[in-house]
Design a protein around this nucleic acid. Structure first.
Lengths: 230, 230
DNA sequence: AAACGCGAGCTTGCATACAAGCAAGAGTGC
DNA sequence: GCACTCTTGCTTGTATGCAAGCTCGCGTTT
């Protein structure tokens, strides 16, 4: 009889451990790592590691070269800006969808988020703060009512983990994040969608800035509206 | 010496063949298929099939249940509407980004797309039409200049393949698609971004409608603009 | 007759063995 | 000294063996 009850699969454990090593900088950008070495490093066979490599490749962490190995893809300013712009596009869409569903929907979602923000602020740890940020934005995204975009956003979040890693590693940017989250939730609760939009834009700009990158994510204006072309 | 020169990996072949079987309806929605049967069916071992299953799961074709098998996820009206709305969001963003880059950028991209549209129309086959549609929209998306969103869009396209399969299988919806594509390209070429936006919206609505689903994909208005809440 | 238990046959998950490809370096011929 | 080749060690890709889990149905028991 086995002592382990309902153990998560070795492939999942390998995925998490490798991802953490990537986020902690143990595997540095540009480094070439092989299935075999990682497998012996984790104490498992190559098969689960291979599975984890594929997941990490689809999420943008690794790039697997046939018969060569997998390189840790470096994350640069372009990637950071691209991810934040994508988040801005999707999350503003979520806000607009929520607003279009009516004031009571906004109030409901806003109050729930606000309550959990306060709950988290009571006793927060770096780990819980990181997890809360993920929950906050994913719940906001789900409020749009489009499951397809919700799933897309989750992969997007995994992509930005490496970018955000630098941020959460800093002083306590978590506090700033939390305050901005609460502000967005409050604006939703008070049914001021325009303010929520501005606060969200500022929040993502803040995230980008706190990670050490310059610039400010923005979306292009709707093409063809008066004034775009004189 | 081996007769096969630079053979693509068996895993890739398995992926394509399984995906085609899914698109052709050989594997019907809700059907439970196992690695072993598919492996013997394709004449390879379970390992490449397993790899293909994972890819197909991330793309929304299959859902793998531990120790049970993989079920072909059914695609319903909600999925169709969600995918088309997501496409609308991303592609309108691409148009706006392109317009923001200036008139000459629009003209350049539009003329290139228009030229290839005419090239395709000269001699088209069902297979080439399907491939051309993919190329058209992906190139449009890449014109936005955000690689992250570009990759996201590709996964989105793979997701909509099952939805579009019904459409391309129909009479000759390909002709309608092609005409609408050309219209969008022409609007870009003539530097009328507002018209391009409308034509793209109509095009996606047409795709949804031709697949047998009702409704029309739309985006919510920007929240907080005057008139949203009286 | 009904309910319970348990084993057969399926499945996946992981480890390992084997083949093939790529790169770099040692060695040889010039 | 230089160039060329071949070997050696690494890597991935695929097949296979084995253990464990989940279902279902048959047999036994009550």
């Amino acid at each position: 009889m086995t002592l382990m009850s309902s153990q998560p699969k070795a492939a999942d454990r390998a995925y998490v451990r490798i991802r953490d090593k990537l986020l902690d900088g143990e595997y540095t950008s540009g480094h070439l790592l092989s299935e075999g070495t990682v497998a012996t490093d984790l104490g498992v066979s190559r098969t689960p590691v291979r599975e984890a490599f594929q997941r990490l490749q689809t999420e943008g962490f690794l790039r697997v070269y046939p018969k060569r190995g997998a390189v840790v893809v470096p994350v640069g300013p372009d990637d950071a800006h691209g991810v934040l712009q994508a988040r801005l596009l999707l999350e503003l869409f979520a806000l607009d969808s929520l607003a279009a569903r009516g004031p009571e929907a906004m109030r409901e979602v806003g109050s729930a988020l606000l309550r959990d923000c306060e709950e988290e602020q009571k006793q927060t740890t770096p780990a819980s703060a990181r997890e809360f940020g993920r929950e906050f934005h994913i719940r906001l995204m789900r409020a749009a009512g489009n499951p397809v975009l919700g799933e897309l956003y989750e992969t997007l979040w995994n992509r930005q983990l490496r970018i955000a890693a630098a941020a959460t590693a800093g002083p306590d940017h978590a506090a700033a994040d939390m305050a901005e989250h609460a502000g967005i939730a409050a604006a939703l609760h008070d049914q001021r969608p325009a303010e929520a939009r501005e606060l969200l834009t500022d929040h993502l700009a803040g995230v980008l800035h706190r990670t050490g990158f310059s610039g400010r994510p923005s979306l292009p204006p709707a093409a063809g509206v008066d004034g775009l072309w004189p």
